[in-house]
């Protein structure tokens, strides 16, 4: 491979760096501004200081003043708790229901198996946006509006997750299951005691995909959880943004809090995060 000349290198790294600033700016700026007062935010906006926290001598009280005020003005803690219950509920029930369905489609022979597989794949085409109204009417008639049940139950079964589990179990060697069957283990026992522990990566991937999708979800929580005590964090952010007077430092603090769980997943589970997202891409 030829070595790049100095000019080529300057241009290449120049372009890369400018792009890095453009893509990183809002995230870094959001976190840094969440620690500044209104005057500092506007003063630092167009300089390199936008990428830095406020100087210790500029701090009035603590770095977390905006956070404390934001928690006082709206029910942020409640919104976060609701989001956690919503997403974790879907993950727990979703992992059980969808992995079992995927396992059935991968391992057992039964009448109409390919028909059900085709139906499940076909439902992937239905955009959730096109059924939210009748789904709302259904959930309303069930008396589930403004309940966790209403938020969670409609989204436990997930065609995409079923399909992903099925593909994964198809590649899983059969021998262990057959040995356990000879030992007299029940099918349910084989699945939960032998298959699940050995296929943790696919469970981790599906769990992360579900978390990302539902932590960021907007339309369904907006229509089904309209009471302040049931708002999820995304809906809470929209509500907070429309509460005058707008204090940008506090809004930035709330935005940062809403992003922290995603950041944690991204930093510590990056492999699963990227794999989970790109899996959607490569496997289809």
């Amino acid at each position: 491979m030829k070595k790049r000349s100095v000019t080529q290198r300057v241009i290449l790294y120049g372009v890369l760096s400018v792009l890095a600033v453009i893509f990183l700016f809002p995230l870094v700026w959001m976190i840094m501004s969440s620690m500044k007062d209104e005057y500092q935010i506007f003063r630092d906006m167009t300089s390199l200081k936008a990428f830095l926290p406020p100087m210790p001598n500029e701090i009035d009280g603590s770095y977390f003043q905006n956070y404390l005020l934001a928690f006082e003005r709206v029910n942020l803690l409640r919104y976060i708790m609701n989001s956690l219950i919503y997403t974790i509920g879907i993950i727990i029930f979703g992992l059980v229901v969808n992995s079992m369905a995927g396992y059935a489609l991968a391992r057992f022979k039964f009448p109409l198996r390919n028909f059900w597989l085709a139906v499940i794949i076909a439902t992937l085409i239905i955009p959730p946006e096109s059924i939210f109204l009748p789904l709302y009417v259904l959930v309303f008639n069930l008396g589930w509006v403004n309940t966790y049940t209403g938020l969670i139950v409609p989204f436990i079964a997930n065609a995409f997750a079923i399909f992903l589990f099925r593909q994964f179990f198809l590649d899983f060697p059969k021998e262990l299951e057959e040995a356990a069957k000879i030992d007299g283990c029940s099918q349910l026992g084989i699945f939960f005691k032998i298959v699940v522990p050995l296929t943790k990566p696919v469970f981790a991937t599906v769990a992360i995909v579900l978390f990302i999708n539902h932590w960021n979800d907007f339309l369904w929580p907006l229509v089904v959880a309209n009471d302040d005590s049931m708002r999820t964090i995304q809906i809470g952010l929209q509500y907070f943004m429309n509460q005058p007077p707008i204090q940008w430092g506090q809004v930035m603090a709330a935005l940062t809090i809403a992003t922290i769980p995603m950041l944690i997943i991204f930093i510590f589970l990056q492999r699963y995060f990227v794999e989970g997202l790109t899996h959607t891409g490569s496997k289809n």
Binding site: V97, A104, K109, P134, L135, Q187
Partner: peptide, 22 residues
Amino acid sequence: AITGYLFLLPALILLSIFLLYP
């Protein structure tokens, strides 16, 4: 076949109620 359907049924029921029915 019975085992297969028992494994598949929870997902099928939920998909029918909350996706196909709407």
